[in-house]
Design a protein around this nucleic acid. Structure first.
Lengths: 135, 135
DNA sequence: CTCTACCCTGACGTGAGAGTAGGGTTGTCG
DNA sequence: CGACAACCCTACTCTCACGTCAGGGTAGAG
């Protein structure tokens, strides 16, 4: 529980850059759960988990603000038991899921286009290297 | 051959924004092949093709500068017949192809991660909607 | 000539960081 | 205790690929 590590170790473990981690604090996405007397950022294990979760979200193309919102949503759902505002939360969560689906479709298209283009490049290479080797 | 269209039509046909097309000129990626007396950009059919090709490259994550370079390379290969500097060109082309492959691998990973995350969201939704409906 | 639809430049804003400068902190060793 | 390396801090400017005004000019039909 007193397992606080400083930014360098967090960077290693999450493979995020120091700058990125600091940036996430700047925008309120992942504030370090403590600071040393001297001002060093100190992160807990769950901070690291949060950062790793964010890394997983990144391909979905959400903004940092949206990720903060979504993380808050998930925390809220996990924590709170009274079922009053739950439907609202679930509606919002549903929106994120739909956005994610759309993004996945877009990613698939991008991948196809990318593969097609790479093939095109390879064809150019084939054509021109053959010409050079078998005149 | 006198088939010059202005920026709006180009935007429609390529589905790029006016701003983007202008930006591509700003950085020297696709300068319009002519201007009207009054200063309107006039694009030819092959300009449009170039823009469409650029759109295909976009998922590969090259910078505009790299795309300009690559396009130049392809033009050069298609046009020039003397085979002196060709090996150099082909080497560079090979580098781009390798970069493309790497990027494709990255895209596939991103896609997997994205799908996994979307599933995670869906699970959250399932869990919490079930609780709400079947107490 | 006027009207509308379209276009222009120029300048500033944005998101998500990268990079740099200049300086402070921690913890270990002698 | 002092010295030292390794690590960290803030604050700032820079990047890329555009978006977003603001203010004004152009093309061509009627």
């Amino acid at each position: 529980m007193g397992e606080h590590m400083q930014i360098g170790e967090v960077a290693e473990r999450t493979r995020l850059s120091l700058r990125t981690i600091r940036h996430y604090e700047e925008v309120g996405l992942v504030p370090p759960s403590a600071r040393s007397k001297g001002g060093f950022r100190l992160y807990s294990e769950s901070d690291v988990q949060r950062l790793l979760l964010i890394r997983k979200m990144k391909p979905l193309g959400f903004t940092l603000e949206e990720m903060a919102d979504l993380l808050g949503l998930l925390d809220h759902l996990a924590t709170e038991d009274p079922d009053d505002p739950r439907t609202v939360l679930l509606d919002r969560l549903t929106m994120y899921r739909e956005a994610a689906d759309q993004r996945i479709t877009a990613l698939r298209e991008q991948l196809d286009v990318a593969v097609a283009f790479a093939d095109h490049l390879q064809q150019q290479l084939d054509v021109h290297t053959r010409r050079a080797r078998t005149p």
